[in-house]
Amino acid sequence: MDNIAGTKSSLVWAVNIAVVVLVLLWTIPTFGLLVSSFRDRDQIATTGWWSSLFPHEASLRFRIGDAETQRQEGEVFVIDGSVFEAGGTVSAFGTSNRDPAAHEPGEVVDFGDGISGTVNEDGSYRVTSPVAFEGRSPRLFVTSVTPPRFTLENYDRVLFAQGLGRAFLNTMTVTIPATVIPILVAAFAAYALAWMEFPGRSLLIASVVGLLVVPLQLALIPLLQLHNAIGIGKDYLGIWLAHSAFGLPLAIYLLRNYMVGLPREIIESARVDGATDFQIFLKIILPLSFPALASFAIFQFLWTWNDLLIATVFLGNTQDQLVMTGVLRELLGSRGGDWEILAASAFVSISVPLVVFFAMQKYLVRGLLAGSVK
């Protein structure tokens, strides 16, 4: 009886569990990235985001000051300071890596050669010597407990980075035309493939489907050589055409499937009334196809906004043409070890796409289901 229309499947619980699992697989890492974007750099390097609300224990190793920071007090020379930059609590310390927690905070320790010192619970230390410090100063090993620290400095570095404002305008200059152009071209092509009879139509449809699986990396160098040959290399026109070319197969396929599912009676009635193909396309097909157009616009906008590869190849890396992803890449440095900058940059870069997505999300599912039901 489970296969009868209108009855509820016994496996609906499995579907619900699968959906919940998929949502968690996407949401949990994103939430972790959001938490990390507000965390201190040192804590990101030592603990995971899931422990961000709790104090954590860490082992620190450092050399106390140097000969230039010493001062003389009576008959002894003193080097003092603090092991913390932003606060914490010392639970133990030592003078050797063999036993880094040998002493309690406040205990005076003999370093040898008349040198003695101590580390207090608040992280302050004081080391004294009967003679002036020369060469390398003594080492300290500290076991500390630091409270959770959150900061806006990561976003401050990203939002006020040099050239980011210009890069934002460059990204908008690239993204908006690269989204509009393929939609305009694909709409005409999709209508022709859906409702106009001409020789070779099936072959063209098969070619469009085949182009969907072609990796864009295969066409980068030949297309760049073509752009350079005709004089549009390293220019906005070149990258507009490149993004449009790479997005057209999906756009044509998506819009054609949607238009094929539109009621044939409406189009035939318009033709009986004397409407031309252009009038049918402009006054009937386009308004009815808005969900599919909006669905592709979301995909194309997100892809173009977050692109770095095509922008690097077809636009270049000059300060006047650098896009946001290029500026954020430079903030990470050559080794990419600034995880706090990476996390903050991720949320800065997705701010505009999120606005676009939530503004047009109601059309997304309707567009994706294009052509599935007659």
Results as ranks from 00 to 15, higher is better:
residue 198 F to A: 11
residue 252 I to V: 15
residue 206 A to C: 07
residue 252 I to W: 04
residue 223 L to K: 02
residue 227 H to Q: 15
residue 220 L to D: 00
residue 184 L to G: 02
residue 262 L to H: 12
residue 247 G to H: 11
residue 271 R to C: 02
residue 182 P to C: 10
residue 280 I to A: 12
residue 189 A to P: 00
residue 205 I to R: 15
residue 273 D to K: 14
residue 246 F to M: 06
residue 264 R to D: 14
residue 239 I to A: 12
residue 279 Q to Y: 04
residue 197 E to Y: 09
residue 252 I to R: 05
residue 273 D to Y: 08
residue 181 I to A: 06
residue 175 T to D: 05
residue 193 L to R: 06
residue 275 A to K: 11
residue 180 V to A: 10
residue 266 I to W: 13
residue 211 L to I: 01
residue 170 N to G: 06
residue 281 F to N: 05
residue 278 F to K: 06
residue 173 T to V: 07
residue 172 M to E: 03
residue 213 V to P: 03
residue 257 N to T: 01
residue 196 M to R: 15
residue 209 V to D: 03
residue 183 I to S: 05
residue 177 P to M: 12
residue 249 P to A: 05
residue 169 L to R: 07
residue 237 L to K: 08
residue 216 L to F: 11
residue 173 T to M: 09
residue 177 P to K: 10
residue 214 V to N: 00
residue 188 F to C: 12
residue 241 L to Q: 07
residue 205 I to N: 11
residue 245 A to E: 02
residue 174 V to S: 01
residue 179 T to L: 12
residue 260 V to R: 12
residue 239 I to T: 04
residue 173 T to C: 07
residue 237 L to F: 10
residue 175 T to S: 11
residue 189 A to W: 02
residue 221 I to V: 12
residue 218 L to H: 00
residue 268 E to H: 09
residue 211 L to C: 14
residue 252 I to Y: 10
residue 257 N to Q: 13
residue 172 M to R: 03
residue 185 V to A: 10
residue 249 P to Y: 05
residue 271 R to H: 09
residue 260 V to E: 02
residue 197 E to T: 14
residue 173 T to A: 15
residue 209 V to R: 02
residue 248 L to C: 14
residue 239 I to R: 05
residue 220 L to H: 00
residue 276 T to Q: 04
residue 193 L to D: 00
residue 264 R to G: 15
residue 266 I to L: 12
residue 242 A to M: 13
residue 222 P to I: 07
residue 266 I to S: 09
residue 177 P to S: 13
residue 256 R to D: 02
residue 205 I to G: 13
residue 249 P to I: 04
residue 240 W to R: 00
residue 269 S to L: 08
residue 251 A to D: 02
residue 171 T to M: 07
residue 272 V to K: 10
residue 223 L to N: 07
residue 183 I to G: 11
residue 194 A to L: 05
residue 222 P to H: 05
residue 237 L to H: 00
residue 179 T to I: 09
residue 171 T to W: 03
residue 189 A to C: 13
residue 267 I to W: 01
residue 195 W to F: 09
residue 217 Q to G: 01
residue 171 T to R: 00
residue 280 I to E: 09
residue 183 I to L: 15
residue 215 P to F: 04
residue 181 I to R: 02
residue 192 A to N: 07
residue 264 R to A: 11
residue 183 I to T: 13
residue 209 V to G: 01
residue 277 D to R: 12
residue 195 W to N: 15
residue 204 L to R: 07
residue 243 H to M: 14
residue 226 L to A: 14
residue 274 G to I: 02
residue 276 T to M: 04
residue 196 M to K: 15
residue 254 L to P: 02
residue 200 G to Y: 11
residue 273 D to R: 13
residue 241 L to G: 13
residue 217 Q to N: 11
residue 178 A to P: 00
residue 281 F to R: 09
residue 223 L to E: 04
residue 187 A to K: 08
residue 244 S to H: 08
